[in-house]
Each structure stands twice: as C-alpha cells, then as structure tokens.
C-alpha cells in the first residue's frame, strides 16, 4: 500500500492513483484473444467458401439457373440450369417438414409433460434419442434403402427421401423442442392445474404457446441441416441423372446438394461454374431460413 496510516483516511490523490493505475492481467487478455481467434477461424472459412463460390459462379447467377439440363448436355453445357434440383429440394424439404415437425414436437411433449422419468424405459428412450442425434447420416441412408425403398417399396422417390431426412433430423427437433418446453416455468403449469385444467389443456393453451419461439428456432435449424444433406440421398436414387421436375410424392427427384455433387464431377468448365452458382444459391437459401428462425424467435417472444 502506498498510503500511510492517516486518521482522516487516504488522500484523494492516493485513491486516484490506486484506482487509475493500469494493470496488466495476462489471463484476461489471453482468454479474450483465444475467443477472438476461435471466432476468426469460423468466419475465415465461411468467407473463403463464399468468395470462392461467388467468384467462380458469378456469371452463372442469372436466369439460366432456372433452366433444366438441356438435351445434348455436354454440347450445350452453357445453357444448363438446376431447376429440377430446386424443385426437388422444395418437394423433399416440404414433405420432411410435414413429417418431422409434428412428430418431433409431439414426441417432445410426451417426454417432457407425460413421461414419468423415474421409469427406466423412459430414461432409455431419452438416452437413445441423444444417441440417434449422433448417428452418421449415411447410416440413415442405408436404413432408408433397405427398409423404406425396398421392403416397404417406396422406391427411389421424393417420399423415401423425405422419410429418411425426417428420421435424420427428428432427434434434433425433439431435443430442441424439449429444451423449449422445459424452459416454460413450472409455476405456469401449476397455476393452470390448480384452476382445474387437464394436462392437454395445460400443454396446448399455456406450455406450447410459450414454447413456440424455441421450437420454431430449433426446427428451422434442423430443416436447414436436412436441406444441405447429401450423403443419405446418394443411396436413395437422388444421384440419378434427371432432367424433369418432380410432380408427386412418388416422383424420381434430385436435390441441390446432390446436383452440386454431380456437376463437380463433370469435366466441363461450364458445369463447374454452374456448381459454384448452385452453391451460392444453397447458401442464400440457408441464410434465408436462419433469418426466418431469428425473425420467428423475436416475433413470437412477445414478452407480455
């Protein structure tokens, strides 16, 4: 201490000197730098990817994207587009959402509101859902090929793809929805029950409305993952070369990630550029979906 014992306390100059002395705190600085470095790594790769795709695909980002693969594809490569892949993605993802959102949210409601988690089978169920979230997507593809395409006989169709992608993202939807449901304060449920509400009344009128922002955010992020997924679809017929749009649940189809994968394999520079343009399109779609997630969260988190 710089001050000596003084019956009137330290002088204001001493206090000022103590309070304003610049101190070097190495741990603080190091930690902050580490955090910034981690952020920079993530951002750098995203920027590199964007820069690469945009420069390469820039002059293909025009109306030609909205074309189908022409006949005589190699000689007219410059006219090729990805319309059928865009439509395929729309079909597959819409159906995936229609399957996995209700299933996932209802499963989450069961686990959070109905299941007695002192029972071993409910705990086993929980554990397995967590595990499912970590299963490689190609394994879901194999399951889809063996069970849904062949045994059930849906074949290489939009429906098969949507069922498999639903299974793939279902654990994510369930986990996100459970978190959102769990975040609803217990006191709200108690208030509802104490007024003579049934369990379903409590869930549907109090818990779910309060959990919608979290459920929506998690679900949209899960669907973003499904949109970008290629591995299981390679096994499920999406890789087949097609030049027409899907028109029913039992149509053959292709999707954007698969189309990108196909185009990259072609030797022609035109196809390479088209692939880059399709990548930019994918990124824009993903960005849009994530924006919707943020919008929904802010819009419905109406703090009463």
């Amino acid at each position: 201490m710089t001050t000596t014992t003084n019956p009137r306390g330290p002088s204001s100059a001493d206090v000022r000197a103590e309070l304003t002395r610049r101190r070097f705190r190495p741990a603080e600085t190091a930690f902050k730098l580490a955090l910034q470095a981690c952020l920079a790594i993530g951002l750098a790769f995203l920027v590199a990817l964007l820069a690469f795709a945009v420069t390469k695909g820039w002059h293909r980002l025009d109306a030609r994207l909205w074309e189908n693969m022409p006949t005589g594809r190699v000689s007219r490569a410059g006219e090729a587009g990805v319309q059928s892949a865009i439509w395929g993605t729309v079909w597959v993802i819409s159906l995936t959402a229609a399957i996995c959102l209700p299933t996932g949210v209802l499963a989450a409601i069961y686990l959070e509101e109905y299941a007695d988690n002192t029972r071993w089978y409910n705990r086993l169920l929980e554990l397995n859902i967590q595990n499912l979230a970590g299963v490689p997507s190609i394994v879901f593809g194999i399951l889809g090929l063996g069970l849904i395409a062949r045994v059930i006989g849906l074949g290489f169709t939009v429906a098969t793809a949507a069922v498999v992608l639903s299974l793939l993202v279902l654990p994510t939807v369930i986990i996100a929805s459970r978190e959102a449901i769990r975040a609803v304060p217990q006191s709200i449920r108690h208030a509802s029950y104490a007024l003579g509400a049934t369990r379903w009344q409590t869930v549907s009128r109090q818990v779910l409305p309060a959990a919608v922002p979290g459920i929506a955010t998690g679900s949209i992020l899960a669907l973003s993952r499904a949109i970008g997924e290629a591995a299981p679809l390679i096994l499920l017929g999406a890789v087949t070369f097609i030049r027409f749009n899907p028109d029913s649940l039992l149509s053959a189809y292709t999707t954007l990630p698969i189309q990108i994968y196909n185009l990259i394999k072609e030797p022609q520079a035109e196809f390479q550029e088209l692939a880059a343009a399709a990548i930019v399109l994918m990124l824009v779609v993903l960005l849009a979906m994530n924006s919707i997630a943020i919008f929904v969260r802010n819009r419905f988190t109406k703090r009463w």
Binding site: I188, H190, A191, A194, G196, Q206
Partner: peptide
Amino acid sequence: GMVFQKPNPFPKSIYDNVTYGLKV
C-alpha cells in the same frame, strides 16, 4: 383452488388470466 407463494399470472392479458379457468 390454490394461490401460490410467488405470484404466477399467465403471460397473457389481465382479462385472459381471469377467463382461463372459465374456459378450461
């Protein structure tokens, strides 16, 4: 009926809080 330790109105309007029990 029951009134709890910590006031726990529903995150809704005053009116909706009172009508909730009537509705269910």
